[in-house]
Simulated assay, not measured.
Amino acid sequence: MTGHEGDTVRPRRRLRADAQRNEDRLLEAAAAAFTREGAGASVKDIARVAGVGVGTLYRRFPSKELLIEAVYRQEVQRLCEVAPHLTATQPPVEALRTWMELFIDFMAAKQGMADALAVVLTDESERLHTRGLLADAIAHLLAAAQAESSARPGVSAPDVLMALGGISLMASSEEQRDLATRLIDLLLHGIVTN
Results as ranks from 00 to 15, higher is better:
157 A>C: 11
59 R>C: 06
183 L>A: 03
86 L>E: 04
165 G>V: 06
83 A>W: 11
33 A>R: 00
176 Q>Y: 01
156 S>G: 09
41 A>S: 08
88 A>R: 15
190 G>Q: 08
4 H>Q: 15
93 V>M: 11
83 A>K: 12
7 D>Y: 10
76 V>F: 07
62 P>F: 09
136 D>T: 09
13 R>Y: 06
20 Q>V: 07
96 L>Y: 04
7 D>L: 15
148 E>L: 14
84 P>I: 01
94 E>I: 05
103 F>W: 03
138 I>H: 06
77 Q>A: 01
51 G>S: 05
100 M>G: 02
11 P>N: 14
168 S>N: 02
49 V>T: 00
193 T>H: 07
190 G>E: 04
81 E>V: 01
37 E>L: 00
159 D>M: 06
90 Q>K: 12
87 T>S: 11
79 L>V: 08
52 V>H: 09
19 A>F: 08
14 R>W: 10
194 N>E: 15
21 R>E: 15
44 K>L: 08
75 E>L: 01
117 L>E: 08
164 L>V: 04
79 L>P: 08
63 S>N: 07
81 E>Y: 03
157 A>I: 15
113 M>W: 07
173 S>C: 14
15 L>T: 06
96 L>V: 05
73 R>F: 04
14 R>L: 14
162 M>F: 13
190 G>V: 05
67 L>M: 10
168 S>A: 10
147 A>G: 13
57 L>D: 04
104 I>V: 02
134 L>H: 07
42 S>N: 07
124 E>W: 13
158 P>F: 09
25 R>Y: 02
52 V>C: 03
109 A>I: 00
52 V>N: 02
80 C>T: 04
121 L>F: 04
186 L>N: 08
165 G>S: 13
48 R>I: 00
171 A>S: 09
61 F>S: 07
17 A>S: 04
137 A>K: 10
49 V>R: 02
106 F>G: 04
53 G>D: 05
157 A>E: 11
104 I>K: 00
103 F>H: 12
112 G>F: 00
153 P>R: 10
174 E>T: 06
46 I>Y: 00
107 M>S: 11
97 R>T: 06
182 R>I: 03
165 G>C: 13
74 Q>I: 08
68 I>T: 08
132 G>L: 09
151 A>L: 14
70 A>C: 05
172 S>E: 12
9 V>E: 08
137 A>L: 04
52 V>F: 02
65 E>A: 14
131 R>N: 09
170 M>S: 15
151 A>E: 11
165 G>W: 15
149 S>V: 09
144 A>Y: 11
162 M>A: 13
10 R>D: 10
59 R>E: 05
73 R>V: 15
